[in-house]
Design a protein around this nucleic acid. Structure first.
Length: 731
DNA sequence: GCGTTACATATTTTT
DNA sequence: TATGTAACGC
């Protein structure tokens, strides 16, 4: 039976379990995706579950796509009716079907973070709140947290004056969203939860349908997502979640790894399965990872092991400054590539903050080496792209005031602040949206009831634009999507506006054409689908693969990926862990997990890099080594660079004496090799234990004069034993 | 209504 | 350092 071939016992149990609730705790590289996809295939093929009775949820479109393709390959058939997608796309789908029970029209739009911020800013201004002391981004973050915690404005606790302000802005912001016929990202989840909670019939309809609910990256769910899953699984109670607390790195987005504990509490009879065999990295890398993550409390201890042997030792390079840090990375890669020891695409360079990529890029450029940069400047975040989308969104949903405000004077058509103020007043008095006023002005010209409210010149300008908008709305369903798009671009002479004869102008027009090209691909699906995908699909999906070049990416972006050779740079206090996390133990734990995620991406080799001095906002500052480095046993590290040769650097004069005294492994001269006891066991030996029976030695090494043996027993799986006391018998 | 200058600000960012 | 925004003056 090929479907279940090549699974280890734990994976097999997870794939075929008949437990109603299953919690799979999957260490990095332990075949998590494999378990999930094979489980779906197993349900369909072996348990005769129809695909439409399955709900499978992920966090990223990429993960969803991978999962779908793999299941389709396993089943050798297309999965048409399965609900497989991201939390947000599943919710959007659900909400679009149920607008009858909601205060939204079916053509609602989805507001991204930028839209949210403009709307919050407007709410703050309307309420005459001081923008300096209540910065929109901060208030928005609080509102977002509230929604993730399923709190309505009226439920928002007001313990401080700030809470009170936030509550008021939240309330206003929320009505504005409804008036705009828009939902923000958090609403997609929150409104879906409320819909299901408040309409038991709808909840039953869906939860009856979903015989099986499966969830990926469960540690990253927030309360709203958890509750959504609970509701959707409420009828059959078949819920299968896969996650790893140690890889939870989105706490600041509301993710709460304690949902893992909550799950165990809510479903006491759930089956808990640990996937601990790692198929990615050699033992040295796993040991490094473990040394780092073991310092975190409140986690299920895991014993990651591999059959791949120890592998190379980890390199720690200490550069004099951040420029030479970047140069070290590039030169090392260059040498290995030129010596044919590796391919350029084998390498990834990971960092804590996007700003760190700049020096790397410069170094790569100087070396004449191509590279791939993940994330950073986002295609959909480009101004011209957002402008075009705003036009389309306005045509799709004329109530969308955020889009309207964005483009009403882009390109400039003489509609300024004063005109906009009178337009807003007119709209507010009539209790309709700005778009509706424009459309009326366009239709009726000086006969419109709004004409007189507006000063002469402004009224003409607005009416002119209203005519345009009206014609687009009218053509909306007649023209094809690309034709409509092209028509708008032509009507507003956008090309001339954007192409300002500069090189940058060419780039920007290129981006617009790129978007137009995408519109052609959506020709058959229409404007609604197009906009929804623009909102819910990030550009991580558009990144160019296939280039033989190193990848530059943040540690966050690295989750779920793997590379043969990994550099993690900026291992300094203040960078990793980041300054902003210093005061909060929870955040410090997350920084540690972030480091852990980075380490465990490496398939073969790991390089840790730091700089003694780096430029922060212009001025140079000395930095201490990351405290996380202290946790890595020195026998796993090979130290190179500035500090290993002579420690006579000015750096020690500036840093606190206690810090230098601290047991930083790379400061201590290599210990004279201890007389080591003889190793009795070697990898791949078969052994016998009186209680556990036969097993295979995976690894054996001397730690503090003791021989430690890792054995994988056929009966109980992985065990770590001390050779001197374990009654092991070599077979 | 638009362009200039001064000033504050500075993580991570699956959707 | 570099970037974006706000206030200011034309």
């Amino acid at each position: 039976m090929t479907l279940l071939a090549n699974l280890n016992p734990q994976q097999y149990e997870a794939v075929t379990t008949d437990a109603k609730q299953t919690l799979v705790l999957a260490g990095p590289g332990s075949g998590k995706t494999r378990v999930l996809t094979q489980r779906i295939a197993y349900l369909v093929k072996e348990q005769n579950i129809a695909p439409y009775q399955i709900l499978a949820v992920t966090f990223t479109n990429k993960a969803a796509r991978v999962m779908r393709t793999r299941v389709e390959t396993l089943l050798e058939q297309q999965l048409q009716d399965i609900w497989l997608g991201t939390f947000h796309s599943i919710c959007a789908r659900l909400l679009r079907r149920e607008t009858n029970s909601l205060p939204y029209k079916p053509n609602f739009v989805i507001f991204d973070e930028g839209d949210q911020e403009t709307l919050v800013k407007r709410a703050i201004r309307e309420l005459n709140i001081d923008e300096k002391s209540y910065r929109p981004a901060g208030v928005l973050a609080s509102i977002s947290n509230a929604k993730n915690e399923l709190l309505l404005p009226q439920d928002y606790p007001s313990r401080t004056y700030r809470d009170e302000v936030v509550r008021r802005v939240y309330e206003r912001y929320q009505t504005m969203l409804v008036d705009n016929n828009a939902l923000d990202f958090d609403d997609l989840l929150f409104v879906a939860v409320r819909l299901l909670r408040e309409n038991p019939d709808i909840c039953e309809r869906y939860s009856r349908r979903f015989l099986h609910v499966l969830v990926d990256e469960f540690q990253d769910t927030n309360l709203a997502q958890y509750e959504l899953l609970r509701l959707l699984a409420s009828y059959h109670q078949n819920i299968f979640v896969v996650g790893d607390e140690d890889q939870s790195i989105y706490r600041w987005r509301g993710a709460d790894y304690r949902n893992v504990l909550r799950f165990e509490k809510d479903y006491p009879s759930c089956r808990k399965i640990l996937l601990e065999q790692n198929y990615r990295s050699p033992q040295n890398i796993l040991d490094t990872a473990r040394a780092v993550i073991n310092r975190n409390p409140n986690r299920t201890p895991k014993h990651l092991f591999t059959q791949r042997g120890n592998g190379d030792i980890i390199t720690l390079y200490e550069a004099v400054d951040d420029t030479s840090e970047a140069v070290y990375v590039v030169e090392t890669i260059q040498q290995l590539v030129m010596g044919k020891r590796a391919q350029a695409a084998d390498f990834a360079v990971m960092y804590r903050t996007n700003a760190q990529s700049r020096l790397l890029e410069e170094a790569f450029l100087r070396a004449g080496m191509p590279y791939r940069l993940v994330g950073a400047q986002r295609f959909y975040g480009r101004r011209e792209v957002k402008d075009c989308i705003a036009y389309l969104r306005l045509v799709h949903n004329p109530d969308d005031e955020v889009s309207l405000l964005r483009i009403i004077n882009v390109p400039g058509r003489g509609i300024g602040e004063k005109t906009m103020l009178s337009l807003t007043m007119a709209a507010r008095q009539a209790h309709i949206s700005l778009g509706q006023v424009l459309l009326d002005l366009g239709r009726n010209g000086d006969a419109s009831p709004f004409w007189k409210d507006l000063s002469g010149r402004g009224a003409v300008m607005l009416a002119d634009f209203g005519v345009l908008l009206g014609s687009w709305v009218e053509q909306r369903d007649k023209l094809s999507l690309p034709a409509l798009f092209g028509r708008i671009l032509q009507d507003v002479v956008y090309q001339e506006y954007i192409q300002d004869h500069s090189e940058e102008g060419e780039d920007r027009w290129g981006n617009v054409q790129e978007l137009l090209k995408l519109a052609y691909e959506y020709q058959d699906r229409g404007l609604t689908d197009f906009l929804e995908n623009l909102a819910l699909v990030s550009d991580q999906d558009t990144l160019p693969e296939a280039l033989d070049a190193p990848t530059l990416l943040t540690l966050h972006a690295a989750k779920g990926l793997e590379f043969p050779q990994v550099f993690i740079i900026g291992l300094d206090e203040g960078i990793l862990p980041h300054n902003r996390s210093r005061d909060d133990p929870e955040q410090m734990m997350e920084e540690r997990r972030l480091f852990y995620v980075g380490i465990t991406r490496a398939k073969d080799r790991l390089y840790l890099v730091r700089a003694q001095r780096r430029s922060t906002y212009g001025s140079y500052e000395f930095s201490d080594a990351s405290q996380f480095l202290d946790d890595i046993p020195s026998n796993l590290l090979k130290v190179q660079g500035a500090s290993s040769a002579s420690r006579r650097s000015t750096y020690s004069d500036y840093s606190s004496p206690s810090r230098v005294q601290a047991n930083m492994p790379w400061n201590i001269p290599p210990a004279p090799p201890k007389p080591e006891p003889q190793q009795r066991y070697r990898a791949a030996m078969r052994v016998k234990h009186p209680a556990w029976g036969d097993g295979m030695v995976l690894d054996s090494r001397i730690v503090d004069g003791e021989e430690m043996v890792d054995v994988f027993f056929d009966s109980v799986g992985f065990k770590r034993l001390m050779a001197s006391i374990a009654p092991l018998e070599v077979l």
